[in-house]
Design a protein around this nucleic acid. Structure first.
Lengths: 211, 211, 211, 211
DNA sequence: GATGAATGAGAGTTCATTCAT
DNA sequence: CATGAATGAACTCTCATTCAT
């Protein structure tokens, strides 16, 4: 059983994946403008030319990264959905899961935030990104509908508002995570902080739905 | 009949201010990496060399912008503080004012967000930025203290947590303002949306403080 | 029941020919510097490596193209030559035939012109190209000799001068075919133009030979 | 009278002119595709960035070169025009002058020829180039008109045809000047060759006009 | 023989920064 | 103080060529 000392195998798919992963890390850390194609190729352990062969341009690679991230998101969202008898509990659970997802995917968080700062240029340009499946929207809509049926949610409650509060509430933990701790002299890594933050988000949503 | 022939005298200050304002706009729109020194000098209506004379480097200019923004923030914060007999009302008012401030200062919002994405590098590097006066912290602390004294706030309530919730809650409205509307197919400019969002933030904080 | 399993057997020659034809088209259109090896391999419907296997390098392929074109030229020239009792008529016929050849072989025209602009580098480097058989030279020499014998051509007439006038006269119709029509606002495709041009070339040569 | 040992003067116009001259030489020698921006900046004795400051891109520089060459041409053409009582003599003179001009401007010749091989792309793209003043056309038209008035030129003679014959006849001396001498084993530098060639061109035109 | 993934040198272009004027 | 020409490093991208399969 001969062992290859040099795994210099020519594997198009693997190379393409390596590039994508390297790009995710680089774009997450530096943003589009700050990212360097050279850095990506080095991280991917491949030649710079490969990037252009597989993704056409820095812009093309960036859009591939964005598309990939949204794909990951929708897959994860699909996992979040479960059956709960109590709509309120379901929404609390979704909040928890969404926080978990963001905490577990810091690159995703940063890329989405860079994209927002770039005024969603790539999201707009790319029709595909706009039509990404977002199961969470459906799930929340269903929960809100049930809650209204059961008479425990406000008749005027808009499920989109809930999704908005949920997503921004989760993202917000990261959106000021470098400047605020300096000013407040607190440590975001302390678990109590996160727990309290999640509680506040949930309470806000609960309040919106109640009455 | 001595004629003062120093028409350029105050240009120095004006030029410096022009540069700073141009830099604020450019850094807000493009971030540090995406910003162009040429663009700034053109917007400022001055020569590129002036930037280096007054601010040493692109980095130096960026830090001046950051310092300026925090200065603006602390001044505005000072205006927020008023006397309210009811601590709960005071906090609600602070939330409203903070939202108003961010809506009225989009450049500030974006610069803080870029800074966070850059992992607060400049905040850390610059000792001054860490010691910026933030009246809002004092104000909230006072309100929380009073609320606890009056027995209407939770004994364990941490005023820093409130500030954190307040600031992230306000920022969160902008942090996903380009991608979320595309996915949710909603219009953030509709005033109801903002009102509901503010209510949710306030309710969250209220819930944290109560009991 | 032996089945011949060599379906690729003659592909070698065919592939080589495909490459050459693709190269002719590409070099004609773009010149040596502007031509792309990728484009050639794609046009040839083969792998890029084949080009290097058969022709060593882009330069080698170019020289093969050049050699091929001269080969074609000399073959065509051979066909031009026929017996004419009247040397003057023979030369007129050669002019006509040469024009016909160039019009029918635009790639040849362009490649020769690119080569001239490159200062005949490849012609010089390649000894073979210099020794290509050019029947037309022999033919014109013979016609001029006969004409002088018959006393109808000038004693000092140099057959090489005639060949030069003939070839440049024919090429000249193409050498400015893109810029001149723009400036003169004429349409070279109009057949009268070509007819007049040929007449002028013939008349020039006739004038040179006469007396 | 102090002599500057380092004429490192900052002279925008001179730099711009240096770049243009260097570009003329480089594009003439190598064509658009073969020319190197680095080579041009080195020849011009300036930084590469200057080229982009003054001419935007390699393409922009090329077009500036083309425009400049046509400008030179039209200026030279203007000098050709003189008063001749005999239209035939005038045309002969124009032929001579045109040959003189091309011989004296080898870069012009090559650039025009490269442009033709590139199918006049830049000529088409650039409206200005199409509307360049070409006094020679006017001059020939006048001569042809006079000749017809005097009854010595053919009534059907088209002055544009004459210009075409004149220009292609002159260019043709250069269009095959590298490959033909190799094949014919002649030396184009020998003055007799040029003289004979000019005579043939003139005779062709004369023949076209006569009758 | 044939493929196409991979390479590296180098091309065009941008940009923060400096410096003569 | 102010200008803008000039610089050089670095960036994105291309392309002839090689090599494992």
């Amino acid at each position: 059983m001969a062992v290859r000392t040099r795994p210099l195998e020519r594997n198009a798919e693997r190379t393409k994946a390596n590039i994508l992963n390297a790009a995710i890390a680089e774009f997450a850390e530096k943003g589009f403008a700050g990212a360097r194609v050279d850095a990506i190729s080095e991280m991917a352990g491949c030649n710079k030319g490969m990037i252009y062969q597989y993704y056409d341009s820095k812009e093309g690679l960036y859009e591939a990264v964005l598309a990939h991230e949204y794909q990951v998101l929708s897959q994860i969202e699909a996992e979040i959905i479960q059956n709960y008898t109590d709509p309120g509990e379901l929404i609390d659970t979704i909040v928890d899961r969404y926080f978990d997802f963001l905490i577990g995917h810091p690159d995703f968080v940063k890329i989405i935030m860079w994209e927002n700062l770039n005024e969603g240029r790539s999201v707009k340009h790319n029709a595909d990104l706009g039509s990404v499946k977002t199961p969470i929207i459906e799930c929340v809509r269903e929960a809100v509908r049930k809650g209204r049926e059961q008479g425990i949610f406000n008749e005027n409650a808009n499920s989109k508002m809930v999704v908005f509060a949920l997503i921004t509430g989760a993202f917000s933990y990261f959106s000021n995570c470098y400047t605020l701790p300096v000013i407040l002299r607190v440590d975001l890594n302390h678990s109590d902080f996160l727990i309290s933050h999640k509680e506040i988000v949930k309470a806000g949503i609960r309040s919106y739905l109640k009455k």
